[in-house]
């Protein structure tokens, strides 16, 4: 069954919190991974692979760099769920 936007945001917040140590409440749609959440390129790859496993969405390497904000990632995952 497809995940809702809210479910994806909540799940992504847990993944980002696990990777970076920030509080899940900090992970909101408007936040930039690089500028607000201290996510670098390798952490971003870990987050992408964890999100693939959690939501069954394929996120190719070339797409990962286009995901600037948490909202970008939520939208991409929502539109590319298996």
């Amino acid at each position: 069954m497809a995940h809702t936007e809210q479910e994806i945001l909540d799940g992504l917040a847990e993944i980002v919190a696990e990777e970076t140590g920030v509080d899940t409440a900090e992970v909101t749609a408007d936040k930039s991974f690089t500028d607000d959440l201290d996510v670098d390129s390798l952490s971003m790859m870990t987050i992408a692979v964890s999100a693939e496993e959690k939501f069954g969405a394929k996120i190719p390497d070339e797409e990962v760099k286009n995901l600037k904000t948490v909202g970008d990632a939520v939208t991409y995952i929502k539109n590319n769920q298996a």
Binding site: S41, L42, M44, M45, T46, V49, D61, K65
Partner: peptide
């Protein structure tokens, strides 16, 4: 391509 290598290595 660092990110691609990272994904391949770790997973």
């Amino acid at each position: 391509q660092g990110q691609t290598v990272f994904r391949w290595a770790v997973w």
